[in-house]
Amino acid sequence: MDKKWIIAAIIIIVAITAAYTLQPKTEEKVIRVGHLKDDHHSALFIAQAKKMYEKEGIKIETIEFNAGPDIVKAAATGQIDIGYCGTPPAITGIAKGVPIKVVAAVNQEGSGIVAGNNTGIQKIEDLKGKTIAIPMKGSIQDVLLQMTLKEHGINPEDVNIIEMQVPLMPKALEAGRIDAFIAWEPYVSMAETKGYGHTILYSKDIWKDHPCCVVIATDQFIKEHPDLLRKFLKVHIEATEYLNSHKEESATIVAKTIGTDPNIEKKAFQNIKFIAIPTESFINNVIKFAEIEKQLGYIKKDLTKDDIFNLNYLP
């Protein structure tokens, strides 16, 4: 008696699974876009809020991740088609053979070094012997910090550099557990506005126009849906232009989307340069960044422009 029911159940389960997976894909392809809860990725939020994707006739589904490397991993396993993420994880992935390409820029700058108000740190030289938190090794913030320390004649070994999850940094700074941190907006503006830290250096002051986030797409998506990619990037450019021309309104929308204080967001927007079409200098800076990553030992390959970029789908 029991055996019969088990066999029947198995057959039913197999049938349902088969029917589901073998369904002819007659519906429109929904573009799956990975991103972070990060105001750097505002183009995505604005495009959604202003219904720009509908106007272009495409459907997207956004998936929020906790960190750039997770987005690259999701792209590697085919769980997303497009991703908004930082340059470092994209480069790491490409160097490891993940089949993705950078198809557009997202922003430049947008980070800063914040020191606690009771630490007496006013300039980079004061960081000697102090504790500063970075998001992770190999990140833009890590590279920027190394750059500025070197510039100011400080040996990185003389500074206690630790890695920490960015959301924990404000509390840690407030509680005096760390003396300073370098992170992306809105955490920099947040520290100032909330009154427990002050910015000693913005990332644009360390490396002007440094690349920050990019749009990546999987090789498979590029191959199978070039038309959708083109349309998506058209929206991305439109949204970026809107961001640059309607800063206050955009800051308010983004604040609502990711749940931050609009005033903090407005201040943060002053520190971020949104750019969709990579300029010559952007491209070169990304390649330079890849070289630095190799120098620091985070990747083992030399990457060329064609390894990293596929800009053929921009208008």
Binding site: P69, P89, T92, A133, M136, K137, G138, M164
Partner: peptide, 20 residues
């Protein structure tokens, strides 16, 4: 080891995961 550790097996795993 997520709390800002600089060494350790968990730290090794997390770092290496990020760098693929």
């Amino acid at each position: 080891e997520m709390i800002a550790a600089k060494s350790g097996l968990g730290y090794l795993i997390m770092e290496s995961m990020r760098l693929l």
